[in-house]
Nucleic acid binder design. Structure first.
Lengths: 196, 196
DNA sequence: TCGCGTACCGTAACACCGTTGCGTTACGCT
DNA sequence: AGCGTAACGCAACGGTGTTACGGTACGCGA
């Protein structure tokens, strides 16, 4: 009975792609629904029928960001040594953040006012850290790490990499500070702190 | 010859105070120049003659945030034990962030689109970490810590506390995770990783 | 003391934003 | 063929940061 929808799945992907490009090119501030709709050859209404609102569209980007993040973390090969594995995961974490800094900003800093990840997105975000949890549990089970609650080591490691990466991306680190060199050193020291 | 200025230093402080209150109450999104001017009994022009622009006003808040931060960190009493001192500094860091989360957001996440700290503000921000640098240098000099470049340990410690605090504030941590308990444990483990 | 000059300040406009009501359009079924 | 209806885009609404401009209120010189 109705006319066929042009606000369909294809348009949804097109908007998502273009929104990612706009943000990657000029930052979250440059993402305007009017510009986005014009670029995609549709009207701003499309965003509302497909996503609900601008924050909801950003939520979709957030989910996509964690999907890519998860892919990279899952691709990390394990050595069996817990400390070495934590270092490898940390390096992959940083590489992932640097691959798309603006997406990282959406995921971990509230750079789009009004956007809060919804419950499902939050759940996904946490699931992304599964490789990390796995590594920590193995480290404790094998007797390398002290026998504390795994979440403590997980959150500690996550906090360190997130802190270093976000300080680096926001330009808060000393100008001449070489991150690459110190990064692995810091990861190793942090992981070593949990050794028996 | 001219009329006396009412856009003076007193008004500047009033605007700064009120801007801080608005942000603390309803987040950075709620800071609008019109509302701010109305609250302070003046016009939006005042912000432009006193600060230059909205980002410049936020820059002033940024500076104020780091000033308070520095006060708290400087007030931490030293024990002489480098690990214990790093833990104390980390605890003060978290307390400071929790005392005004929205100010912390301005300082460390780009929550106000268009705002970038200027060079002078950046310099101040780094100077705030002096107590941390001092502690690390003493730890190395006394032979407790391995003999690496002090910046490496400084940035590593800063990264950990910043990462944990910002994950906590942004609600990214597991729901039932008790931060208070794990926090000091993580700080101690991280600092211990640099022991000889 | 009066009035002029001038620096200052608020009003109002501009361009833009996210959002939404509403009239139009274009299809599928009868 | 024509009607019902769902989907769509235009245009308006209230808001934003920013700025040009015209009125204002003072201090100094006459």
């Amino acid at each position: 009975m109705p006319r066929p929808r042009t606000h369909d799945k294809a348009l949804r992907l097109k908007l998502l792609d273009r929104a990612g490009e706009l943000i990657s090119a000029d930052g979250p501030k440059a993402l305007s629904l009017r510009k986005l709709a014009a670029d995609a050859g549709t009207s701003t209404t499309a965003v509302y029928s497909l996503f609900g609102s601008k924050p909801d569209l950003v939520n979709a980007l957030y989910v996509e960001g964690f999907r890519r993040f998860g892919e990279r973390l899952n691709a990390v090969a394990r050595t069996g040594d817990a400390v070495a594995d934590l270092v490898r995961l940390g390096v992959a974490y940083r590489a992932s953040a640097q691959a798309d800094p603006h997406l990282y900003a959406i995921m971990f800093t509230r750079s789009v006012p009004g956007f809060e990840p919804n419950a499902e997105a939050d759940r996904l975000a946490r699931a992304t850290l599964e490789p990390l949890e796995d590594t920590v549990r193995r480290g404790i089970a094998s007797g390398q790490f002290t026998d504390v609650a795994p979440e403590v080591i997980v959150v500690s490691s996550w906090g360190l990499v997130h802190g270093l990466v976000s300080l680096e991306l926001s330009g808060n680190l000393p100008p001449k500070f070489s991150v690459s060199g110190a990064y692995e050193q810091a990861l190793r020291a942090n992981a070593s702190g949990w050794l028996k």
